[in-house]
Nucleic acid binder design. Structure first.
Length: 841
RNA sequence: GCCCUCGUGGUGAAAUUGGUAGACACAAAGGACUUAAAAUCCUUGCCCUUUUGGGAGUGCCAGUUCGAGUCUGGCCGAGGGCACCA
């Protein structure tokens, strides 16, 4: 048995992969294969291994099928962890990030990926964010950037804004101080301008998972309704409300507005109102906390006149459950037919009128009911709407409202504008300056990039850039007057919203991208990454394409990602010791009776459920140590083998060991075929047919991302070879088909595949094996013979045999004939090449 | 609460889309080789039968069909997304 030295061959082939480029295929068909670029956190994890292995299979497969393939890699290099690490280790975020990038790049290379490292980009490089600042200014000039006030999580001790995940139980994760809701003036991208287009665009995305499209659809949240203006009594003012249920207007018993609604301004000095407002602010900022908060209201003592019921006046409340940034920030309450309105009406003793009923002869008393009626029904107590269905009533009332000019049909979206301001150091500076007169203007493009200062004190409380006076203070170039820089930096989602465009011309200095290049390479044909980015990253990137097009009409595409694949997570069992402390798998061993125990003191270990690998649960397996012990090919092979790529996979050392053993056997098979004595050739044709059929199956499976099925098929092929080694198959036939098998393995386990191809003296190694459609026609098929729907035997026959011939065969079949001859046959069902079913009753 | 997805052996999973259920692999048990272990190879895997063979069987209950893991209706269970969205 030949022993495979994987360390040696991996080194050998990786140096060759380094020099090869997949986009050198002289072909007109292009294929842009992209995996979500990683955050340089320090070391690669198994999630990366899975993501990039899947991507590498696709890239290499497409290349072998004649495509000109773009397969780049870069770094999502700005972000908060670098600042935290800087504080902990006293290492500058830039140094920390650069160090991590070098380390992770080295590790990725160990995997044998077909990445073109000449295209590498890093978002924290000036050469990248310079262009991002340019794009920001372009967007600003096109009116796609705006500034408005927004609530943030404010940590009063650290004097900084916290992200939602940094708020733990309403307290700052580092300081422990109670987090406040604070209004701050911030920058926004006007993504809502594109709400409808982003929603409609989803219909074109045939190669996206339905799940992701549904999530985006819900996120954009389109709802059709109407706006109605209510007159406020004794004033000439009006309140504009939005509703999706204008049909229930006759049940309106109050109006409610948001605390941020303009009509509240007159109460700003009212003590009761101030108390009420503070009460609202106390509730946390997380959406869940808001949703579960009790409904409270403030009675303005104002009344509005009902537009359709003469003389009826309804009270106006300020309520904590009304959001200013949805609809108009005001509603009319119809308690009988909306749960929130019912809860509110009961609390404040407001009138409840039933206007939609599923049984008009039996009026309901909603004062005694806890649930509002929100189903379809017949309109009652509603004047000219009486007797209509909900849908009919909606149409009629909207018509009437428009006729009376007191409102109109309106569409609302749940999608909010994209807040891009971050009060942080390690991000792309927003290229704006504040002038003395309070105006804010973009930095002149000739002055870009606005570089991040290197000398920075991250230990002082507050925004580091705000504290850096010599950086902050500047001169406005046009007027020569002193000015201050914007100290907010951009959300890192901005960095990742256009990196796929930069990859098409990463060295271009004068512009963010070369339009001709992006019109050649874009859209990304296959984008691969985690489901966690299903909404924000993908939606923001889709927005960017549209926004960039507004600025440059030469750009062709609306949609950046034609195909999307979301891979599952990598999981591992969790372990705890007797004290309940999490244990890393390396600290655990299997004892004599198969019981898990601690390596150090042999104490019993509690085995927990398998969960996605995370540092906190310590159930992480280090990819590099796996590659060291089993080789990159084994790790790649295992991570593709056990589960469908879109589902979670359980990491197991037994599994990767099995992969290792299999690859060893593959290598031995090649050695054996090489030295095999010549045999008769009776079975060549049969072998060729079978192999051809497998190539066909596997090609289809890869196109459908059924990579685990490919692995199973390869095992079957291997078993086929094992059986035929001793049979009457010629060496030529075996060797030719073995070369095919090795070519199939190239995208999966490139090192060993190329090594074997070299050993087998394959003339050509860069194309996918051809499928002979004539041979597929000649395959034999297995047909099931059923009696009364139960399978009684399976026969192997040629394709396309007619019913009469099959019936003849059955009548001669020893297992069948007695049953067929003993009773009359009522009916025969025959499906060509599939099945024959005799009905005997 | 609303929306989506999924329930197949001890485990991960296949199943040409209505046509052989459990491919392929992991784990387990038994055996072969070996002084022994490792490695390797073989066999087994629900129920009845000595065997040939027969039967049940894809979360549960019904239905459509010659035939259902796949289609329809109801129920149970798991996972995910959204959530005062008017």
């Amino acid at each position: 048995m030949e022993r495979l030295n994987f360390q040696e061959i991996e080194k050998k082939w990786q140096s060759i992969f380094d020099k090869e480029k997949l986009y050198n295929n002289k072909s007109s068909k292009k294929f842009y294969c992209l995996e979500m670029f990683p955050y340089p956190s320090g070391k690669i994890h198994m999630g990366h291994v899975r993501n990039y292995t899947i991507g590498d299979v696709i890239a290499r497969f497409k290349f072998m099928n004649g495509f000109n393939v773009l397969h780049p890699m870069g770094w999502d290099a700005f972000g908060l962890p670098a600042e935290n690490a800087a504080k902990e280790n006293n290492l500058h975020p830039k140094k920390w990030t650069e160090k991590n990038i070098l380390e992770m790049k080295r590790q990725l290379k160990l995997m044998g990926l077909s990445i073109d490292w000449d295209l590498e980009v890093s978002t924290c490089d000036e050469s990248y964010y310079k262009h991002q600042q340019e794009i920001f200014i372009d967007f600003y000039k096109k009116g796609l950037v705006k500034r408005k006030e927004n609530y943030v999580n404010w940590d009063p001790v650290e004097q900084t804004v916290l992200a939602n995940e940094q708020v733990v139980n309403g307290k700052g994760w580092r300081s422990g101080a109670i987090v406040e809701r604070k209004k701050l003036s911030q920058w926004f991208f006007d993504i809502t301008k594109f709400s409808n287009d982003l929603l409609k665009g989803l219909n074109e995305l045939d190669n996206w998972p339905e799940k992701v499209k549904t999530m985006q659809k819900n996120w954009i949240g389109k709802s059709v309704g109407c706006e109605i203006k209510f007159e406020i009594l004794d004033t000439n003012k009006k309140i504009n409300v939005f509703t999706t249920r204008p049909d229930t207007i006759f049940g309106a018993s109050f109006l409610a507005v948001s605390v941020d609604h303009p009509i509240c301004e007159k109460f700003l000095k009212d003590e009761k109102y101030i108390k009420f407002k503070n009460e609202c602010l106390k509730v946390g900022t997380t959406e869940e906390a808001l949703a579960n908060a009790e409904k409270i209201g403030f009675n303005t003592k104002l009344f509005a006149s009902h537009p359709f019921i003469k003389g009826k006046n309804i009270p106006i409340f300020v309520a904590n459950f009304i959001l200013m940034d949805y609809g108009t920030g005001a509603i009319f309450g119809c308690p009988a037919h909306d749960q929130r309105d019912l809860d509110f009406a009961k609390k404040y003793g407001l009138q409840i009128t039933e206007v939609v009923s599923d049984n008009p002869t039996k009026p309901k008393n909603f004062n005694n009911l806890s649930e509002a009626f929100t189903d379809d029904g017949t309109l009652i107590n509603s004047d000219f709407l009486n007797g209509l269905t909900v849908e009919q009533a909606k149409a009629k009332i909207i018509e009437k409202i428009e006729k009376l000019k007191i409102g109109e049909k309106q569409i609302s979206f749940r999608l909010k504008d994209w807040g891009i301001s971050r009060q942080r150091y390690w991000g792309c500076p927003i290229p704006m300056i504040h002038l003395d007169d309070g105006s804010i203007v973009p930095v002149d493009k000739s002055e870009l990039p606005v570089k991040l200062p290197e000398d920075i004190d991250l230990n002082k409380p507050g925004n580091p850039l705000e504290n850096h006076k010599s950086w902050k203070n500047t001169i406005h170039k046009k007027t020569g007057k002193p000015a201050t820089r914007e100290t907010d930096t951009l959300d890192t989602f901005v960095d990742s919203s256009w990196y796929f465009l930069r990859f098409c011309s990463p060295k271009k200095d004068s512009e963010p991208f070369d339009v001709n290049k992006i019109n050649y390479w874009m859209p990304v044909d296959q984008y691969i990454g985690g489901i966690e980015h299903a909404i924000l990253h993908l939606l923001y990137s889709r927005f960017f394409m549209r926004a960039l097009k507004k600025n440059n009409n030469k750009i062709r595409d609306n949609e950046p990602f034609k195909g999307l694949f979301t891979q599952g997570m990598v999981c591992h069992q969790t372990y705890k010791d007797q004290k309940g402390k999490w244990l890393n798998p390396t600290e655990v061993e299997k004892g004599s009776k198969g019981i898990f125990q601690k390596v150090s003191d042999k104490s019993k270990v509690i085995v927990g459920p398998s969960e996605s690998m995370s540092k906190s649960k310590k159930n992480v397996i280090d990819p590099e140590s796996m590659i060291k012990s089993y080789g990159a090919d084994s790790v790649r092979w295992f991570i593709l083998s056990d589960s469908p790529p879109e589902k979670d996979i359980q990491w197991s050392n037994q599994g990767v060991n099995a992969a290792y053993k299999f690859l060893q056997k593959i290598y031995n098979l090649c050695c054996e075929v090489k030295k095999r004595p010549e045999k008769k050739i009776n079975l060549d044709k049969d072998f060729d047919l079978k192999m051809n059929s497998y190539v066909n199956k596997i090609t289809n499976s890869i196109n459908n991302f059924n990579l685990n099925v490919v692995v199973a098929n390869v095992y079957e092929i291997f078993n086929l070879f094992q059986i035929h080694l001793t049979k009457e198959v010629s060496n030529k036939c075996l060797k030719e088909n073995l070369i095919k098998l090795m070519k199939i393995l190239v995208p999966f386990t490139p090192h060993i595949a190329y090594e074997c191809l070299e050993m087998l003296e394959a003339k050509e190694t860069k194309t996918w094996p051809k499928i002979d459609s004539k041979l597929i026609q000649q395959e034999k098929i297995k047909m099931a013979i059923q009696i009364n729907g139960k399978t009684r035997d399976i026969i192997e026959i040629e394709k396309g045999i007619a019913q009469t011939s099959v019936e003849e065969l059955c009548k001669k079949n020893t297992k069948i004939k007695n049953k067929l001859l003993s009773q009359p046959i009522n009916k025969v069902i025959f499906v060509k090449d599939r099945i024959i079913n005799f009905i005997i009753k």
